[in-house]
């Protein structure tokens, strides 16, 4: 009991209250609903009558007989891949270029950051103005008749860049701040050692940005998993734009809600997010040790 002696009764009370409050809130607002979803996912419930326990029935239906499910999983993963492999690196590239104090760099910086202040629902609205088959700018200018948003084989590839447009600006501003904090002496030292521009960046600057990289990775994963508003604004997340978050809403919210079924989809989303969180936290703890 040695460490205990260091704390007075008052300290312990403060710790108990402080920690207790945080734990209670966490339990009530995060774990309570999450576990409730897990429990509900085993039931058939319309929100009115008593829930009926059906075990794994919802999951079996999901995997085997709910056509939008697998497209939604695939779309969420594509979304993550697009943001992580294309939008985020592009944001980094923009940040690096802007960091070299080009002429008009302020203008570029503002132009690239501008979409970040828009909500994704607004981005979805703008996308419709551009890509609508009948009145969209793109078809009007090019004379094409492509149904960019209605054709389920291409609409995701139109919407992801629209979402990426916003994500790029977000990532750029974070990296720009990160790059400003990299000690210029590091780059000078690398240059003196004869490293080229590319080598300096990849071997010296980029590793020095590690804390920023982690933040960018985390927000990218979050953005990919919570993507919802842009597809909902465009076509309510149907017909090629299915996402897990949309399916959850679609099933739970509504007149005769399939709350059990929707909860099962929510649990899958929870499992996927938890997977990323576990990987991320284990990385962090390993590095810190």
């Amino acid at each position: 009991m040695a460490p205990n002696r260091r704390y007075s009764a008052g300290d312990r009370a403060v710790i108990a209250v402080g920690l207790g409050l945080a734990v209670a809130l966490e339990l009530a607002l995060i774990w309570g609903p999450a576990l409730a979803s897990v429990a509900l996912s085993g039931t058939d419930w319309d929100g009115i009558e008593r829930p009926r326990w059906i075990g794994g029935g919802n999951y079996a239906d999901l995997a085997a007989e709910y056509p939008p499910f697998w497209p939604a999983v695939r779309n969420n993963l594509l979304w993550l891949g697009f943001l992580a492999l294309i939008a985020a690196p592009f944001g980094l590239l923009c940040a690096v270029l802007l960091d070299r104090r080009l002429r008009l760099s302020r203008v570029y910086q503002n132009a690239l950051y501008l979409p970040v202040v828009l909500s994704l629902a607004v981005v979805g609205f703008i996308a419709q103005l551009v890509f609508s088959a009948d009145y969209g700018v793109l078809n009007a200018v090019t004379g094409l008749t492509t149904d960019w948003l209605g054709d389920s084989s291409i609409n995701l590839w139109v919407v992801m860049p629209a979402a990426g447009w916003r994500h790029t600006g977000y990532v750029m501003i974070i990296y720009l701040a990160g790059l400003k904090s990299v000690d210029p002496a590091l780059k000078e030292a690398a240059a003196i050692d004869g490293a080229g521009e590319g080598q300096t960046f990849f071997k010296v600057v980029f590793p020095a940005l590690r804390p920023v990289n982690v933040i960018v990775l985390v927000i990218t994963v979050i953005e990919a998993l919570r993507a919802f508003d842009i597809v909902y604004a465009i076509n309510k997340g149907r017909n090629g734009l299915e996402l897990l978050s949309v399916l959850v809403t679609e099933n739970i919210v509504g007149e005769a809600a399939r709350i059990g079924f929707g909860s099962a989809i929510a649990v899958i989303l929870l499992v996927i997010s938890t997977g990323f969180i576990v990987v991320y936290l284990s990385q962090i703890f390993r590095e810190d040790r």
Binding site: S132, D134, D147, W148, G150
Partner: peptide, 11 residues
């Protein structure tokens, strides 16, 4: 009318 899935009834 083609491309119906990208069009609202208003349009």
């Amino acid at each position: 009318q083609p491309a119906a899935l990208g069009r609202t009834w208003q349009e």
